[in-house]
């Protein structure tokens, strides 16, 4: 330790480096927060004020803007919220359950095509959903499912990335002796999975359900291809619709409150769940 020779100098140097780190971190945090701060500020101000001048402190118009938006007949906000919530909740449940089921099938049993099945799922993991959209639309309209929620919910049963996460998680926490013990007790395999395995992998299920919920809440590409009637529109579609309308004619307070509704509830949930979310990230996606 060359620096260690002069203890004081090293300490001062370290303190300086540390302050630089903190300044950079604070600036980056501000960068992350500033746009949302403006969102809150402008969502709580009336149209005329937003147009005329800049403000750094929130106004008192939040609920007025919100009730204006709810009263607007062209934007069915509540309907959109319900649709988004419904689709996201269904996909979250299906994705986590069926991915765990698939992962368990490959993890716990030695069947003939086990390796082939695993390799296959790994190979299709990175295929973007967009590239099969042409055929997907044709298929969905052939099935008569256009403008319904089925094509947005059912495909989530096959989620290779979630499968990979679940399988890795099982390898680290699930001893097969549990399964053996259940067999001795005469438990049916499917019951064993539902009653014994699922509780053990609950943390993984929760993390993947959260991620899947968020991904579907935010999803814009597939819904905009499938949904066309007003009553079935999801929040991202309503946002895009807001942009394609001539926004200068709009009440800007309402535009901001609409973005607010799309973003802020999720942020609040995130603040409570962030610990699990960030931990889940490092568990699932690091492959050294």
């Amino acid at each position: 330790m060359k620096r260690g020779v002069s203890g004081k100098g090293a300490k001062a140097g370290l303190a300086l480096t540390r302050s630089v780190c903190y300044i950079v971190l604070i600036l980056l945090s501000l960068l992350c927060i500033f746009s949302f701060y403006f969102l809150i500020v402008n969502a709580s101000r009336p149209h005329a004020e937003i147009m005329s001048e800049l403000s750094l402190s929130p106004g008192k118009y939040l609920f007025k803007n919100l009730s204006n938006l709810l009263a607007d007949k062209n934007i069915s906000l509540l309907r959109g919220l319900f649709n988004s919530l419904f689709i996201s909740a269904c996909t979250a449940a299906l994705t986590s359950y069926f991915s765990a089921m698939t992962a368990y099938g490959i993890y716990a049993y030695n069947f003939r095509f086990k390796k082939a099945a695993f390799t296959f799922i790994m190979m299709i993991m990175m295929v973007p959903t967009q590239v099969s959209a042409v055929g997907f639309i044709q298929l969905v309209s052939g099935m008569g499912l256009m403008d319904t929620f089925y094509p947005l919910i059912l495909p989530s049963i096959a989620a290779p990335v979630v499968f990979y996460f679940m399988k890795s998680y099982m390898e680290s926490v699930l001893p097969l002796e549990i399964v053996e013990a259940a067999r001795v007790d005469g438990s049916n395999e499917f019951m064993t999975f539902n009653r014994i395995i699922l509780p053990v992998i609950k943390p993984a299920l929760a993390v993947q359900a959260i991620f899947s919920f968020v991904a579907n809440w935010n999803n814009y590409f597939t819904p905009q291809l499938i949904i066309n009637s007003d009553k079935n529109k999801t929040i991202p579609i309503l946002i895009a619709q807001l942009r394609s309308a001539d926004y200068m004619k709009f009440d800007l307070g309402m535009v901001y409150i609409m973005i607010f509704v799309a973003i802020i509830p999720l942020l609040i949930v995130y603040i409570f769940l962030s610990k699990y979310i960030i931990k889940g990230l490092t568990l699932g996606s690091v492959k050294g």
Binding site: F98, S99, M101, T102, Y104, G105, I106, A108, Y109, N110, F111, K114, A117, I121, I124, V127, T129, V131, S132, A133, V134, G135, F136, Q138, L139, P151, L154, P155, I157, A158, F163, E189, F190, F193
Partner: peptide, 25 residues
């Protein structure tokens, strides 16, 4: 044999909603 039972939903859905659309694309 149970292995097939557990992976069946994944592959069924994958084939219908992803593989067939991909090939028809």
């Amino acid at each position: 044999k149970w292995g097939y039972f557990f992976i069946a939903p994944f592959f069924a859905v994958f084939i219908v909603f992803q593989l067939i659309p991909l090939l028809s694309t």
